[in-house]
């Protein structure tokens, strides 16, 4: 069975964001998810940073320090090959979850 917990979906969101946007810092990730979901999803910073560091330790994402457009130093994250594999898996898991939930909702 797929691993369908909330942490899994946060990972999925972060990985997907990075795959779509390339290099991004934590704040950028928060903004992107908020914007892309039409303000439906708001990622808590309190969960985001531990998750980022955990994923970095797992080798799914890499990081480097770089300057932002406003000239501020920030830590930028990007997807690694392992992260890309992980993303594909997470996407599959998520689709299954959705299908499963829908099936339950439609059951009569």
């Amino acid at each position: 069975m797929a691993r369908n917990d909330l942490q899994g979906s946060l990972d999925l969101l972060v990985l997907k964001t990075l795959s779509q946007r390339g290099k991004l810092h934590g704040y950028g990730i928060v903004l992107h998810i908020q914007r892309a979901s039409d303000d439906l999803l708001r990622v808590e910073e309190g969960s985001l940073y531990p998750a980022l560091h955990r994923m970095e330790n797992s080798g799914w994402i890499g990081s480097e320090w770089a300057l932002t457009e406003t000239g501020r130093r920030a830590k930028y994250y990007r997807l690694t090959a392992a992260g890309r594999r992980r993303l594909r898996q997470a996407e599959g898991d998520f689709e299954e979850l959705v299908k499963g939930v829908q099936a339950v909702m439609r059951y009569s």
Binding site: Y27, E45, H53, R72, A74
Partner: peptide, 14 residues
């Protein structure tokens, strides 16, 4: 220290 800097950057950008 690095995490501090990262979090501070986030705060400042916000």
């Amino acid at each position: 220290a690095e995490i501090d800097a990262e979090l501070r950057a986030h705060l400042e950008m916000a």
